[in-house]
Protein backbone atom coordinates (compact mmCIF):
# COMPACT_ATOMS: atom_id res chain seq x y z
CA UNK A 1 0.00 0.00 0.00
CA UNK A 2 2.97 2.37 0.33
CA UNK A 3 3.42 4.97 -2.29
CA UNK A 4 5.64 3.82 -5.15
CA UNK A 5 8.94 5.61 -5.61
CA UNK A 6 7.85 7.26 -8.85
CA UNK A 7 6.47 10.66 -7.90
CA UNK A 8 2.74 10.04 -8.42
CA UNK A 9 0.30 12.52 -6.91
CA UNK A 10 -1.57 11.03 -3.96
CA UNK A 11 -5.04 9.64 -4.70
CA UNK A 12 -6.79 11.84 -2.16
CA UNK A 13 -5.14 14.85 -0.70
CA UNK A 14 -6.42 17.28 1.91
CA UNK A 15 -4.27 20.33 2.40
CA UNK A 16 -4.59 22.91 5.20
CA UNK A 17 -8.36 22.55 5.51
CA UNK A 18 -9.98 25.13 7.77
CA UNK A 19 -13.69 25.44 8.50
CA UNK A 20 -15.40 27.94 10.77
CA UNK A 21 -19.03 27.57 11.83
CA UNK A 22 -20.77 30.91 12.03
CA UNK A 23 -24.16 30.84 13.67
CA UNK A 24 -26.33 33.65 14.91
CA UNK A 25 -26.34 34.56 18.61
CA UNK A 26 -23.11 32.60 19.03
CA UNK A 27 -19.44 33.20 18.56
CA UNK A 28 -17.96 31.54 15.50
CA UNK A 29 -16.49 28.10 16.21
CA UNK A 30 -13.42 26.82 14.39
CA UNK A 31 -14.33 23.23 13.55
CA UNK A 32 -11.27 22.26 11.54
CA UNK A 33 -7.90 23.95 11.59
CA UNK A 34 -5.16 23.25 9.07
CA UNK A 35 -6.13 19.64 8.58
CA UNK A 36 -3.89 17.82 6.11
CA UNK A 37 -3.32 14.25 4.99
CA UNK A 38 -2.96 12.02 1.97
CA UNK A 39 -4.56 8.73 1.10
CA UNK A 40 -3.45 6.16 -1.47
CA UNK A 41 -5.68 4.29 -3.86
CA UNK A 42 -7.12 1.13 -2.32
CA UNK A 43 -6.20 2.09 1.22
CA UNK A 44 -8.51 1.56 4.19
CA UNK A 45 -8.03 4.58 6.46
CA UNK A 46 -9.91 5.30 9.67
CA UNK A 47 -10.30 8.62 11.41
CA UNK A 48 -10.71 8.62 15.17
CA UNK A 49 -10.98 11.64 17.43
CA UNK A 50 -12.93 13.13 20.30
CA UNK A 51 -16.62 13.95 19.81
CA UNK A 52 -17.12 17.22 18.03
CA UNK A 53 -13.66 17.33 16.46
CA UNK A 54 -15.18 17.68 13.00
CA UNK A 55 -14.67 14.13 11.69
CA UNK A 56 -18.12 13.88 10.17
CA UNK A 57 -17.99 17.40 8.83
CA UNK A 58 -14.76 16.52 7.12
CA UNK A 59 -16.38 13.53 5.44
CA UNK A 60 -19.18 15.79 4.24
CA UNK A 61 -16.49 18.02 2.72
CA UNK A 62 -14.91 15.15 0.86
CA UNK A 63 -18.40 14.19 -0.29
CA UNK A 64 -18.81 17.71 -1.65
CA UNK A 65 -21.69 18.86 0.55
CA UNK A 66 -19.69 21.30 2.69
CA UNK A 67 -17.09 23.73 1.45
CA UNK A 68 -13.98 24.53 3.47
CA UNK A 69 -13.26 28.16 4.31
CA UNK A 70 -9.69 27.66 3.18
CA UNK A 71 -7.44 24.86 1.97
CA UNK A 72 -7.60 22.42 -0.91
CA UNK A 73 -9.01 18.96 -1.41
CA UNK A 74 -8.01 16.93 -4.40
CA UNK A 75 -8.88 13.56 -5.71
CA UNK A 76 -7.03 12.01 -8.62
CA UNK A 77 -5.35 15.38 -9.09
CA UNK A 78 -8.60 17.31 -9.61
CA UNK A 79 -10.09 19.56 -6.92
CA UNK A 80 -13.31 18.44 -5.19
CA UNK A 81 -15.99 21.03 -5.88
CA UNK A 82 -19.22 19.17 -5.29
CA UNK A 83 -20.77 15.72 -5.18
CA UNK A 84 -19.42 13.31 -7.76
CA UNK A 85 -19.86 9.79 -9.01
CA UNK A 86 -16.43 8.70 -7.77
CA UNK A 87 -17.36 9.24 -4.11
CA UNK A 88 -20.26 7.73 -2.13
CA UNK A 89 -21.19 7.90 1.52
CA UNK A 90 -22.56 5.36 3.98
CA UNK A 91 -24.46 7.33 6.63
CA UNK A 92 -24.60 6.69 10.36
CA UNK A 93 -28.40 7.01 10.50
CA UNK A 94 -28.68 4.85 7.37
CA UNK A 95 -30.51 7.60 5.45
CA UNK A 96 -32.89 5.22 3.73
CA UNK A 97 -36.00 6.68 2.12
CA UNK A 98 -38.74 5.14 4.27
CA UNK A 99 -41.28 5.12 1.42
CA UNK A 100 -39.06 3.05 -0.87
CA UNK A 101 -38.42 -0.67 -0.88
CA UNK A 102 -34.93 -2.10 -0.46
CA UNK A 103 -34.49 -2.36 -4.22
CA UNK A 104 -35.72 1.18 -4.88
CA UNK A 105 -33.39 2.50 -2.18
CA UNK A 106 -30.38 0.75 -3.68
CA UNK A 107 -31.34 2.14 -7.10
CA UNK A 108 -31.52 5.73 -5.82
CA UNK A 109 -28.06 6.89 -6.95
CA UNK A 110 -28.40 5.28 -10.37
CA UNK A 111 -31.86 6.75 -10.80
CA UNK A 112 -30.61 10.26 -10.03
CA UNK A 113 -27.89 9.78 -12.62
CA UNK A 114 -30.47 8.83 -15.21
CA UNK A 115 -29.62 5.14 -15.63
CA UNK A 116 -32.39 3.19 -17.40
CA UNK A 117 -34.81 1.31 -15.17
CA UNK A 118 -34.01 -2.21 -16.35
CA UNK A 119 -30.30 -1.64 -16.01
CA UNK A 120 -30.44 -0.19 -12.53
CA UNK A 121 -32.72 -2.94 -11.23
CA UNK A 122 -30.24 -5.52 -12.47
CA UNK A 123 -27.38 -3.67 -10.79
CA UNK A 124 -29.41 -3.35 -7.58
CA UNK A 125 -30.05 -7.10 -7.56
CA UNK A 126 -26.33 -7.82 -7.83
CA UNK A 127 -25.58 -5.59 -4.89
CA UNK A 128 -28.42 -6.86 -2.75
CA UNK A 129 -26.88 -10.28 -3.27
CA UNK A 130 -23.40 -8.98 -2.43
CA UNK A 131 -24.56 -7.62 0.93
CA UNK A 132 -26.60 -10.75 1.62
CA UNK A 133 -30.11 -9.32 1.51
CA UNK A 134 -31.63 -11.70 -1.06
CA UNK A 135 -35.27 -12.25 -0.28
CA UNK A 136 -35.74 -8.77 1.18
CA UNK A 137 -35.92 -6.86 -2.11
CA UNK A 138 -39.51 -5.76 -1.60
CA UNK A 139 -39.27 -4.95 2.10
CA UNK A 140 -39.60 -1.42 3.42
CA UNK A 141 -36.89 -0.04 5.72
CA UNK A 142 -39.10 -0.19 8.81
CA UNK A 143 -39.37 -3.95 8.33
CA UNK A 144 -35.58 -4.40 8.54
CA UNK A 145 -33.24 -4.64 11.53
CA UNK A 146 -30.50 -2.05 12.02
CA UNK A 147 -27.85 -4.28 10.51
CA UNK A 148 -29.96 -4.99 7.46
CA UNK A 149 -30.68 -1.30 7.01
CA UNK A 150 -26.99 -0.57 6.93
CA UNK A 151 -26.45 -3.35 4.39
CA UNK A 152 -28.93 -1.47 2.20
CA UNK A 153 -26.96 1.72 2.85
CA UNK A 154 -23.75 -0.03 1.80
CA UNK A 155 -25.35 -1.53 -1.30
CA UNK A 156 -26.71 1.85 -2.30
CA UNK A 157 -23.29 3.47 -1.94
CA UNK A 158 -21.63 0.71 -3.98
CA UNK A 159 -24.31 0.78 -6.70
CA UNK A 160 -22.92 3.84 -8.44
CA UNK A 161 -19.47 2.18 -8.56
CA UNK A 162 -17.58 4.87 -6.67
CA UNK A 163 -13.80 4.71 -6.28
CA UNK A 164 -14.00 5.93 -2.70
CA UNK A 165 -16.37 4.87 0.05
CA UNK A 166 -16.86 7.44 2.77
CA UNK A 167 -18.24 5.83 5.91
CA UNK A 168 -19.54 8.04 8.71
CA UNK A 169 -19.71 5.89 11.86
CA UNK A 170 -21.74 3.40 9.85
CA UNK A 171 -22.00 0.81 12.62
CA UNK A 172 -22.47 3.14 15.59
CA UNK A 173 -26.22 2.56 15.75
CA UNK A 174 -25.91 -1.23 15.75
CA UNK A 175 -25.69 -3.63 18.67
CA UNK A 176 -22.29 -5.15 19.50
CA UNK A 177 -22.79 -8.51 17.82
CA UNK A 178 -24.26 -7.12 14.62
CA UNK A 179 -21.41 -4.69 14.60
CA UNK A 180 -18.76 -7.45 14.71
CA UNK A 181 -20.55 -9.25 11.91
CA UNK A 182 -20.81 -6.14 9.74
CA UNK A 183 -17.14 -5.32 10.27
CA UNK A 184 -16.10 -8.75 9.06
CA UNK A 185 -18.38 -8.48 6.03
CA UNK A 186 -17.16 -5.00 5.21
CA UNK A 187 -13.59 -6.33 5.15
CA UNK A 188 -14.62 -9.13 2.80
CA UNK A 189 -16.40 -6.73 0.48
CA UNK A 190 -13.48 -4.35 0.58
CA UNK A 191 -11.03 -7.08 -0.31
CA UNK A 192 -13.23 -8.14 -3.20
CA UNK A 193 -14.00 -4.70 -4.61
CA UNK A 194 -10.72 -2.94 -3.74
CA UNK A 195 -12.36 0.41 -3.02
CA UNK A 196 -10.57 3.15 -1.16
CA UNK A 197 -12.31 3.53 2.20
CA UNK A 198 -12.30 6.46 4.57
CA UNK A 199 -13.95 5.34 7.76
CA UNK A 200 -14.92 7.62 10.65
CA UNK A 201 -15.47 5.91 13.99
CA UNK A 202 -15.49 6.39 17.74
CA UNK A 203 -14.19 2.92 18.38
CA UNK A 204 -10.44 2.34 18.62
CA UNK A 205 -11.01 -1.38 18.27
CA UNK A 206 -12.98 -0.94 15.07
CA UNK A 207 -10.37 1.39 13.61
CA UNK A 208 -7.49 -0.94 14.45
CA UNK A 209 -9.29 -4.01 13.16
CA UNK A 210 -10.32 -2.58 9.79
CA UNK A 211 -7.64 -0.13 8.75
CA UNK A 212 -4.26 0.13 7.08
CA UNK A 213 -3.73 3.44 8.79
CA UNK A 214 -5.51 5.29 11.58
CA UNK A 215 -5.61 9.07 11.65
CA UNK A 216 -6.01 10.42 15.18
CA UNK A 217 -7.49 13.91 15.25
CA UNK A 218 -7.17 16.53 17.97
CA UNK A 219 -10.07 17.96 19.91
CA UNK A 220 -11.78 20.97 18.34
CA UNK A 221 -10.48 22.66 16.30
CA UNK A 222 -9.69 19.37 14.60
CA UNK A 223 -6.45 18.66 12.80
CA UNK A 224 -4.26 15.61 12.29
CA UNK A 225 -2.54 14.70 15.54
CA UNK A 226 -0.82 11.52 14.52
CA UNK A 227 -1.09 8.86 11.84
CA UNK A 228 -0.58 5.30 13.04
CA UNK A 229 0.24 2.44 10.66
CA UNK A 230 -1.51 -0.83 11.39
CA UNK A 231 0.97 -3.46 10.19
CA UNK A 232 -1.20 -6.47 10.83
CA UNK A 233 -1.51 -9.19 8.20
CA UNK A 234 -4.60 -9.55 6.04
CA UNK A 235 -7.05 -11.15 5.68
CA UNK A 236 -7.91 -10.41 9.29
CA UNK A 237 -10.42 -12.35 11.29
CA UNK A 238 -12.05 -12.10 14.65
CA UNK A 239 -9.38 -14.23 16.36
CA UNK A 240 -6.75 -11.68 15.42
CA UNK A 241 -8.45 -9.28 17.80
CA UNK A 242 -7.40 -11.49 20.70
CA UNK A 243 -3.66 -11.39 19.88
CA UNK A 244 -1.17 -9.34 21.93
CA UNK A 245 -0.02 -7.51 18.75
CA UNK A 246 -3.53 -6.25 18.16
CA UNK A 247 -3.89 -5.11 21.73
CA UNK A 248 -0.52 -3.40 21.57
CA UNK A 249 -1.74 -1.35 18.59
CA UNK A 250 -4.98 -0.53 20.35
CA UNK A 251 -3.13 0.79 23.36
CA UNK A 252 -0.86 2.85 21.10
CA UNK A 253 -3.89 4.54 19.55
CA UNK A 254 -5.41 4.99 22.97
CA UNK A 255 -2.24 6.66 24.29
CA UNK A 256 -2.46 9.24 21.51
CA UNK A 257 -6.20 9.76 21.74
CA UNK A 258 -6.25 9.90 25.54
CA UNK A 259 -4.47 13.25 25.59
CA UNK A 260 -7.31 14.72 23.56
CA UNK A 261 -10.09 13.17 25.59
CA UNK A 262 -8.86 14.02 29.07
CA UNK A 263 -8.64 17.77 29.57
CA UNK A 264 -5.28 19.01 30.83
CA UNK A 265 -3.30 15.97 29.76
CA UNK A 266 -2.45 17.40 26.36
CA UNK A 267 1.23 18.15 26.15
Amino acid sequence: MRRPLAKMPPFIRANDITLVFKSKNRDPVTALNNLSFEIERGEFVSIVGPSGCGKSTFLNMLLGLVRPDSGHMQMNGTPIKGPGQERAMVFQEFGLLPWRTVTANVELGLELKGVAAAQRTQRAMELIKLVGLNGFERHYPHELSGGMKQRVGLARALATEPEVLLMDEPFAALDAQTRDLMQAELLQIWERTKKTVLFVTHSIEEAAYLSDRVIVMTARPGRTKQIIDINLPRPRDYEMRLTPEFNEIKSRIWEVLKEELIPGSRR
Binding site: N60, G64, L65, G84, Q85, R87, A88, L108, T160
Partner: peptide
Protein backbone atom coordinates in the same frame (compact mmCIF):
# COMPACT_ATOMS: atom_id res chain seq x y z
CA UNK B 1 -35.09 14.67 7.45
CA UNK B 2 -31.76 16.48 6.90
CA UNK B 3 -29.96 13.18 6.44
CA UNK B 4 -32.23 12.21 3.54
CA UNK B 5 -31.60 15.56 1.91
CA UNK B 6 -27.85 14.99 2.28
CA UNK B 7 -28.12 11.48 0.87
CA UNK B 8 -29.86 12.71 -2.24
CA UNK B 9 -27.56 15.69 -2.63
CA UNK B 10 -24.53 13.44 -2.28
CA UNK B 11 -25.65 11.69 -5.45
CA UNK B 12 -25.55 15.07 -7.18
Amino acid sequence: NRVLVNVVRSFG
